Computed example of a mutant assay.
Amino acid sequence: MEIGIPKETKDKEFRVGLSPSSVRVLKDNGHAIFVETQAGNGSGFTNENYNKAGATIVYTAEAAWDRDLVIKVKEPLSQEYRFLKKGQIIFTYLHLAADRKLAEYLIDCGVTALAYETVEKPGSNKLPLLTPMSIIAGRLAVQFGARFLESHQGGKGILLGGIPGVKPGKVVILGGGVVGTEAARIAVGMGATVQILDVNVERLAYLENLFGSRVQLIYSNSANIEDSVKSTDLLVGAVLLPGLKAPTLVSRKLVQQMLPGSVIVDVAVDQGGCIETLHPTSHTNPIYIEEGVIHYGVPNMPGAVPWTATQALNNSTLPYIVQLANQGMKALEENPALAKGLNVNNHCLLNPAVQNVFPDLVDLRQNN
């Protein structure tokens, strides 16, 4: 199979779909890999690295896209839509619930689109291709939040860990999944006062075993969210409903009650965000101030650490990519987890969660 690796076009997105070591594995399986020139530079991989691994370097985006299977990191942007075509398979993060325009185009053009974030191991609720980036995003959320709490960034001027004689900052995390757990690890390590709110009592019990008394674990409801958010220095949105748009947990009215210079980092922005006042930003312009509160809404946070993130992503995606390259669509019949990744095929929207978000886009042909 011919496999294309385009250079990412999202703002300051320096990750790349395949590392040279992954290219070598696919080459050993008999596939031809075409890498757009300098696609790996931001992750520390040169054209020479890819050549040595057996890839062919191509010098236009079109040459990388014009392949049977295209491996990316982030969703195609509007300037890339022209490269999508029927009969082609694309495997990347899509987050269609937050991007109706992309969903409509994928359906219209007839491409086969698989999403990393909806690959799910049957019966486990585990998302193996989302987890590594969730770990990174959770850790970065507190790292970035701490930075923007600094006074010269417009923040309160608070050191999250405090010092002897001065109380530490407060971090509130909405959601106790992978992102929330990793955010708590970093916040606890910094010495902050940390609260996690979640609706899953079993998850809260797990987190108690993990963190003990170092983290306050609170059942998530509107009253408890309001009580925690009003007094926090850093609010981290870490809500995930696989494939669905994130629910709005923090209203504008509640943001208005936060102290000026507080910081919100919403990792759920990929799926529409869980804070009413937050909208997507970029690595170039990561923050804005609304209601006196600093909002950080970069949807591709792991792109800030591409050397780590690319390798972490490849460690998880490569087995699925090899199977897809070796077997084509038959791989979905043999691998139920990979089959869960299928979002669009033959002009039909297939993922149930995305169908719930856009019921009017469900093509009746798939029911015949």
Results as ranks from 00 to 15, higher is better:
His31Arg: 13
Gln355Lys: 05
Pro76Ser: 07
Lys101Pro: 10
Leu94Tyr: 09
Leu254Thr: 06
Gly341Ser: 03
Tyr50Leu: 02
Ala63Phe: 06
Phe45Ala: 14
His152Ala: 06
Glu334Thr: 12
Gln256Asn: 12
His95Cys: 01
Tyr81His: 06
Ala103Pro: 02
Lys101Trp: 10
Val255Leu: 03
Trp65Gln: 10
Thr131Cys: 15
Val199Ser: 15
Glu8Phe: 00
Glu104Ile: 01
Gly189Tyr: 08
Phe83Gln: 08
Ser251Val: 07
Asn343Glu: 05
Gly155Gln: 08
Gln79Arg: 08
Lys126Tyr: 09
Ala312Phe: 14
Gly44Trp: 01
Trp307His: 15
Thr193His: 15
Gly161Cys: 05
Gly272Thr: 04
Val194Tyr: 00
Glu2Val: 03
Val179Tyr: 06
Ser220Ala: 13
Ala353Cys: 00
Asn49Ala: 15
Ile186Trp: 14
Asp360Arg: 14
Leu235Ser: 04
Leu129Met: 08
Tyr116Gly: 06
Glu104Ala: 13
His31Gly: 10
Leu130His: 10
Pro164Asn: 15
Asn346His: 13
Lys12Met: 12
Lys340Val: 10
Asn314Pro: 01
Glu290Asp: 15
Arg185Glu: 08
Leu160His: 07
Gln153Met: 03
Asn285Ser: 12
Leu249His: 02
Thr118Asn: 13
Lys72Met: 00
Asn41Glu: 14
Val215Gly: 11
Lys12Gly: 07
Ile57Gly: 15
Val179Met: 02
Met301Tyr: 06
Asn367Ala: 09
Leu174Glu: 02
Glu80Tyr: 05
Val25Leu: 10
Pro168Thr: 00
Ala61Ile: 01
Leu69Gly: 09
Ala304Met: 11
Leu159Asp: 03
Ala331Pro: 12
Val25Asn: 05
Leu129Ala: 00
Val344Glu: 14
Lys101Arg: 14
Ile163Met: 14
Val70Lys: 14
Thr131Trp: 11
Val172Asp: 03
Val215Met: 04
Ile33Trp: 02
Ile33Gly: 11
Leu94Pro: 02
Lys245Pro: 01
Ala312Met: 15
Ala268Tyr: 11
Gly17His: 04
Glu117Ser: 12
Val250Asp: 01
Asn29Tyr: 15
Phe83His: 12
Asn51Ala: 07
Gly212Thr: 07
Gly261Leu: 03
Leu240Val: 07
Gly180Asn: 09
Met1Leu: 12
Glu36Leu: 10
Thr317Arg: 09
Pro352Ser: 13
Gly243Pro: 13
Ile294Met: 04
Gly243Asp: 06
Asp227Gln: 14
Gly54Ile: 01
Leu26Pro: 09
Phe148Met: 11
Ile294Trp: 10
Val70Pro: 00
Leu318Lys: 07
Asn314Phe: 07
Ser228Leu: 11
Asp360Leu: 11
Arg214His: 02
Met1Tyr: 04
Leu106Lys: 09
Leu313Thr: 05
Ile57Arg: 14
Ile173Met: 05
Val357Phe: 10
Leu207Met: 04
Glu120Phe: 04
Val25Trp: 06
Ala304Gln: 07
Ile3Leu: 13
Asn300Cys: 02
Met329Phe: 00
Ile107Pro: 15
